[in-house]
Structures are given as structure tokens and as C-alpha cells.
Design a protein around this nucleic acid. Structure first.
Lengths: 197, 197
DNA sequence: ACTCCTTAATAAACAGTGTTCAATTGATGC
DNA sequence: GCATCAATTGAACACTGTTTATTAAGGAGT
């Protein structure tokens, strides 16, 4: 499949190294043939991104035990997200290098995959339903997730040593701990109860 | 100057619409001449980005009154950041679409500009120096700033309606309020003391 | 066996990209 | 007038995404 080849190329040479001719050559076809299957290269990229979201969801769902305290679950989710971003950096980067066409945004099936990933954070916060409204929980989950993403982004994309010596995981932990404290979740007595990878 | 022309092109056509020949034509020169001034197009982009960081710093510094409570200052900074991202979206986007060359990261002068922006958040948190160590404040500032950036990113880049009906400003506010609460800053009595638009 | 039709795939072309470099210009000093 | 030197050019190279007329292949119907 063309998508497999595209993933290999991106993993090896990054998003800028991806070209229609390279993908076509990798599957022993001509560029023209590629355009019979995909509307354009953006379309191909979007489909690869869809697969990336699926992979991301699976990795994160694997570490989110169905039961458990919000804090532990969120930290596990964040670590899984960060691990994926670190291990599959080019693919992860491509998720955000893709820019939607002018006018019409992302297709529905893609948005569905996105919100499936977001849903994991939401689910982790659900035990707070007795203290917070459903809307508040949904909003908090998305704020938290966007924030974890932002931390990941700045660390990996700009690879900056501006983080004050903190690792990505430590920054995510600081964020989640303080946010949850403010949101009404008490911090466990010992703050050293979890290794940060 | 070539940088002025490049900024105009990016503002009009976005980062993908920027090309060496367009910049050269806009200043009535040839591409060859451009390459006597800039090592390559990435170099030009980096310098434009440097200017963008300067502009961003000025806008943010303008709303950060020298004295004031951390919460109010941070909210003002976040609003200024979001406003800039919304008003100058293509330029702001380019800040993060630029990818550093393989191997060597960003140059020192660029990192200095970046940390100058981060410094504003740090400064806003400085009144907490009696309760927190300098390192904790530095780390918190960077965590917060990366998070605000992440919120901005997801809203603007993927323009998603996945935010649960919240505006970017509301999300930033939710983040800052809860984080600060956890970090040891009491929330003012009324939560409607500041308009968000 | 011989058409007819559909489908798959191609090669070639077009306009654009970043980047380089031999050749040309213009002005300066002598 | 002539030589020198820096600034500037235009053309070239190897790419890019995308389109399209043309070819090849395989059945279906007679």
C-alpha cells in the first residue's frame, strides 16, 4: 500500500523528504498512478495522519486502565503521548505540519479520530462528575490535553534547553498536578510515588 | 529590505506562498542577489521569525504592567499572545513551521529572543518568590507558557470545534486559574472581574 | 478469432520550487 | 583610457505537485 511506503519515507526523511515520486517509486508505480488513488498529496498526508492518530490512540488506550484515579491516569496518558512523540517524531510532527486547505477544514472522519484521542483524557476525569459538571470536565480535559501537547511541541520542535532543566515528562507532571489541585483533586501524600520514565 | 517584503508576502499568502523569487521580485532584484544576503531561504525565514518574536515581545510587554498580581498579569499576557496569534496568524504560524536543520539547533540570538518572551511569564510569577524557589518559578512559567501556546496552537491550526464551545481565551483562563490555584495562588472572590474578549 | 469496451498504468509535459555560478554590468582608482 | 573590484544578473540544474493524452491489458459479445 502507498500509505505504508509513505510512512516509511516520513520515518526516514521526515515530512519535507516526502514526495509523490518517492512514494510512487517505493511501490514500483508512477506518479500518475498515485493521483488515481489520492486526490493530491495533501490527501495522502491526511490519510497517513489518520493512521498516526489511530496508533496514538492505541498506545494511549493501552496504558489507561479502565479504573483508577484521575491523576494517575492522566499522568500515564501524558507519558504515553510524550513517548510516542519522542519515538516517532517525524510522524508526530507531520500531524501538525499539515495545514488544512483554505476554507474547508478537516474532514469529519479525521475530527472523529481526533476527538477519540481527546476522549481518553475526558474519561480519565470522569470520576470527578460528582463535583463538576459534564461540560466542565470536557473543557478541562481539552485544556489539559492541549497543554500537554504544547509542552511536547516546544520541547521537541524547538528542542530548546529553555525548560529550566526539566524533562518533558516532568513538565507535564507539573502541569497536571497543579491543574488538578486547582480543579479539586488532592495530590497524593508522597510526590515520589511514580517514576517518570 | 528583503525582510519587509517577506513579511508582506507571508501575511498575504502564508508561509507556503513564500518563495525566493517572489521576495526578490518584490524588492526588484533577482534570486541570485537574495542568495548573496541570505545563506538560504531557511535563513531568511529564521530572521523574519526573529522579528516576529520581537513584535510579540513588545505587544506582550505593553500589557504587562510592572506591578500587579500574578494572575492578572498572566491572563493579560495570555490574551495578548492569543490576540497576536489571531491577528497575525500566518506570521505566528511560521514561527512553528520552521524546522531547524538536522543536527545543529536554533542559533543563540534566536534562543535569546525566545527566552525573552518566556521571561515575561517568569516575571509575572516572581511575587511568589516567598513561597516558591526561583527554579520552581522558572519552571512553572515555562510550563504555563508552553501550555498557553498549545491551546492557541490547536485552536488556530486545526481550527477545531473540539473545544467544547470554549474560546481560546476561556481555555487559557481555565488553565491559568486552576494551575495557579494548585501552585498556591488564591483566586479572587469574583471570577467575573475581567472581561475575556 | 475478431472486434468493442473498460480499466490500469504510463510517459511526457507544465509551471513552479531552492540553489548555484559563469558572465555581465557599473563604478572606482590610476 | 584602462584596469580592478564589487554588485548584479540570467541561465542552468535538479527537484517539486499535478494533469492528460496515449498506450497496454483483459474480458464480453458475436
Amino acid at each position: 500500500m502507498a500509505l505504508d511506503a509513505a510512512e516509511r519515507i516520513v520515518a526516514a526523511d521526515g515530512y519535507p523528504g516526502l514526495s509523490a515520486r518517492k512514494v510512487a517509486a517505493a511501490i514500483d508505480y508512477t506518479v500518475g498512478t498515485l493521483y488515481l488513488v489520492f486526490a493530491n498529496l495533501n490527501d495522502l498526508v491526511l490519510q497517513v495522519n489518520g493512521r498516526t492518530l489511530d496508533a496514538l490512540f492505541e498506545r494511549m488506550a493501552a496504558v489507561a486502565s479502565p479504573t483508577g484515579a484521575p491523576r494517575g491516569k492522566l499522568l500515564a496518558l501524558a507519558d504515553a503521548y510524550i513517548a510516542y512523540a519522542k519515538n516517532e517524531t517525524p510522524r508526530w510532527n507531520m500531524l501538525f505540519e499539515y495545514v488544512a486547505e483554505h476554507g474547508n477544514g478537516l474532514p469529519d472522519w479525521y475530527l472523529a479520530k481526533l476527538s477519540k484521542v481527546f476522549g481518553l483524557a475526558e474519561e480519565a476525569l470522569r470520576p470527578l462528575a460528582d463535583r463538576r459538571t459534564a461540560l466542565e470536565i470536557q473543557q478541562a480535559a481539552r485544556v489539559l490535553w492541549a497543554s500537554v501537547h504544547g509542552i511536547c511541541m516546544l520541547k521537541i520542535r524547538q528542542r530548546m534547553d529553555l525548560a529550566g532543566g526539566q524533562s518533558t515528562e516532568e513538565m507535564a507532571r507539573m502541569l497536571i498536578d497543579n491543574f488538578l489541585l486547582g480543579f479539586g483533586v488532592a495530590k497524593p501524600a508522597s510526590s515520589k510515588d511514580r517514576k517518570t520514565g
